[in-house]
Nucleic acid binder design. Sequence first.
DNA 1: TACCTTTCTGAAAGTCATTTTCATTTTCCT
DNA 2: AGGAAAATGAAAATGACTTTCAGAAAGGTA
Lengths: 143, 143
Amino acid sequence: MDRIAAFNECLRHKGLKNTSQRMIILETFLGSKSHYSTEDLYLKLRKDHPKIGYATIHRTLKLFAECGIAIELNFGDGQTRFEPLRANHHHDHLVCTSCGKVIEFTEPQIEDLQAQVAAAHGFVIKRHRHELYGLCSNCAANS
Amino acid sequence: MDRIAAFNECLRHKGLKNTSQRMIILETFLGSKSHYSTEDLYLKLRKDHPKIGYATIHRTLKLFAECGIAIELNFGDGQTRFEPLRANHHHDHLVCTSCGKVIEFTEPQIEDLQAQVAAAHGFVIKRHRHELYGLCSNCAANS
DNA sequence: TACCTTTCTGAAAGTCATTTTCATTTTCCT
DNA sequence: AGGAAAATGAAAATGACTTTCAGAAAGGTA
């Protein structure tokens, strides 16, 4: 099941309706590797779909997160960003605090250790956030 | 050097002044294990020091972070929290999404792996955020 | 100690991302 | 096709945080 089908499934499950706006937003959202804020996506969509309002885009991004189509990211700049989620492709982030570049990484050993830590405290983990902030190779070289 | 002395040192270094409000806020802040939001600390201080304003408390908490007395935490609930920082005592967090309980953990192997990941991408890490969200043992048992 | 420049403070106003409201439009079940 | 339920978009509201500003306090200097 691709992500568009998964979203439709989620809408049906929640008793919500499929609208042209939601499809347009979903396709644009999936068709990029970016980490969109509502503002980013609003500006991008405005070119071809000037009638779609900011509130609708924000509501829809939150809905994507609820449906498991996207995850919310917060890199501490005051804006929530949304990232398209690929099934079975969990990853964490390296964030350059100078140029804003974001690199994804996966480290199964860290995942294992996390699970051990949680188990040691009796926690049942639902999700986690792991972000490394610093300078990317370019910015480190030029500073 | 204790943290009060370190704070005074930082004030002097920045050319800032030591005021009674800053000392009151610092002592209250250090005298607790909590993860304070500005609001939390404002409400707590209001009992004994009703004249200290919200803005002063928030400015002071930010200043603590700049001076390395505190770190800013963001658990995704829209409020920034500040945690007193002990020298040489880095840790990460387990957060219960049901009751709000926060447990600190340390896992040196994870720290090592992080450093390896960063090095593999040429990143120079300045700080990181690692939070595990789920249900604490109590909440897991009662759900 | 008295002065005086700089920084602080508190209240109120301002920002800004996000959320809600509400009148109208659209979806989709029967 | 008809109609209940949900969605939309514009505007207003919210809430955390930040800034402004006039008076107060700190702390260096003479």
